[in-house]
Design a protein around this nucleic acid. Sequence first.
DNA 1: ATGTAGATGTCGGGA
DNA 2: TCCCGACGTCTACAT
Lengths: 231, 231
Amino acid sequence: MRLVVARCSARYTGRLTAHLPLATRLLVVKADGSVLLHSDGGSYKPLNWMSPPCTMSAAEPDEESAARGVTAVWTVQHQKSDDRLEIDLYDVVHDSDHDLGVDPGLVKDGVEAHLQELLAAQIELLGTGHSLVRREYMTAIGPVDILARDADGGTVAVEIKRRGEIDGVEQLTRYLELLNRDPLLSPVRGVFAAQEIKPQARVLAGDRGIDCLVLDYDAMRGVDDPDSRLF
Amino acid sequence: MRLVVARCSARYTGRLTAHLPLATRLLVVKADGSVLLHSDGGSYKPLNWMSPPCTMSAAEPDEESAARGVTAVWTVQHQKSDDRLEIDLYDVVHDSDHDLGVDPGLVKDGVEAHLQELLAAQIELLGTGHSLVRREYMTAIGPVDILARDADGGTVAVEIKRRGEIDGVEQLTRYLELLNRDPLLSPVRGVFAAQEIKPQARVLAGDRGIDCLVLDYDAMRGVDDPDSRLF
DNA sequence: ATGTAGATGTCGGGA
DNA sequence: TCCCGACGTCTACAT
């Protein structure tokens, strides 16, 4: 990812035609060639941008542009359409490059969050004698949904999904690997809990010594939700 | 505008609950306090963000977090709702601050509107003997871009787009259906005019008995625009 | 302030 | 791949 802060102007042609007058802005060039042009306010939407797949090429300004003070011209061309973004750079205030690597991406906890609450409140669904240690137990690679103790005092890490698939088992495996390095917690047992667990995920979990727990959302709500107990 | 590149994890609670596992990302803090969290790919949408009005406060990590390697905790709180974004920063790779000033903002060049003006002024591009009835001819379902008469006195409805795609043909079809119910106008012929017409749209138009007209914007401006006639 | 339609919408899922 | 619907939609404009 390349970060440039510069006085610049820009033109965009594609679904519409538009231009940006001269001002100081942040230019972000991502690893996939996409470009964002941000001002110091507004929302998360850039003033102007080019989505991937696209290619960015920097060129010397022509004589006329150079005379106006342009130091570089960036052309960002979309690869599948004729969308094109041209940026004239004037004074460059900042220019740096960073290797960010791949991003695991956002994890949305919608129904998942509710399942987590319910299971935390009904922790004995894990087995008689279980007790809750903590929800969203923080680790360096993200929060473990539920940490609990079983009847024998052993630690249990629970990963909760709406639909239990292979990647959820992988996630729990990573957590277990990390948690088991902590002598205060080890040995940590894993429980993969979901409303529905795919056969492949169940097989993989079994292979990893991870228990599977199918959660009955409605039944759990029925126990916990006052609205469902009115009768 | 503050730019930080750092390994970080984040949690968002508000309309939904979500979290970002540990990874290296770009953090942008804008002058209005809004915060963007970008990965090195994807489109212009950040992985996570907080829109203004909001306040960002940085704090020391608690003991437990510090033990995990957290060097700072940012809390971004929306001012009108209980939306909240919490960011744990680990290794900070880059941190810089820049004064960008106010931005004049994006100027959209209404090419479609301009094309309509130009075609109205050069209505014979539809064919010899055509005359303009009206621009923005109002109907119950919206304005028809141009209504004209051909050499034989027949009515012609023109839909103008910069890029001619299927939905434009559908739109014109709806207008034609409506206009053809009017005995004073019927039969009404349709013309789909655009700078560029996609093959699918051309096929659909043909199927509906709608003529296609490719507009040469530069040539039309050359005829009409005094700035281009100076020589 | 509030509701509604458009967006360079973006993004994900299913056929 | 295209099509369709949801979105932390956002945004401007109308009332």
